[in-house]
């Protein structure tokens, strides 16, 4: 089971970290694409986990794209910013993306655009923003009967 887990704004980080850990426990190979490194330090040595860091600062991202993302943000062009972020993420993850992706999980709103791009490329993959859910091979949606409380 190949999982691509996207976390561009891990908040709250402990929930996101727990989800990644759970997928690893379930035996998945997880490619974690993230804009930060801090939350994943204690997971770094886990077998099956590959981490790709999306550098959004101009120096770290190879210059033009990072500067573009920062510039767009300063100019108030936030819509273009999410697309630029998706481009940066794709550049960071490209060499590690498996040929077959089974599950794409976007753990926050900022990651949705790149999740959508990957979902278009991999039409058979499950593409979800519900990163708490169990993996398909683990036996279903992970949720008991939804109750009246709703989310």
């Amino acid at each position: 089971m190949n999982v691509v887990f996207l976390s561009f704004a891990p908040d709250p980080p402990e929930l996101v970290r727990a989800a990644v850990r759970r997928h690893l426990d379930a035996g998945a190979r997880v490619l974690l694409v993230s804009t930060s490194t801090g939350p994943w330090r204690d997971l770094a040595d886990r077998p099956g986990l590959t981490i790709r860091h999306v550098r959004t600062d101009p120096a770290g991202s190879g210059g033009v794209s990072g500067a573009l993302a920062g510039g767009l943000r300063r100019l108030g062009l936030r819509a273009a910013r999410t697309h630029a972020l998706a481009l940066l993420a794709d550049r960071a993850a490209r060499d590690a993306l498996p040929a077959r992706i089974d599950v794409i999980m976007a753990a926050d709103g900022l990651a949705a655009q790149y999740g959508y791009v990957l979902a278009r490329r991999h039409p058979r993959a499950l593409a979800t923003a519900d990163y708490h859910r169990a993996l398909p091979s683990a036996g279903g949606s992970g949720a008991a009967s939804p109750t009246s409380a709703g989310p």
Binding site: A112, Y116, T128
Partner: peptide, 11 residues
């Protein structure tokens, strides 16, 4: 479902 997200929600 990420595929069902509209332009505004993604961008």
């Amino acid at each position: 479902d990420l595929r069902a997200f509209g332009w505004l929600r993604r961008s």
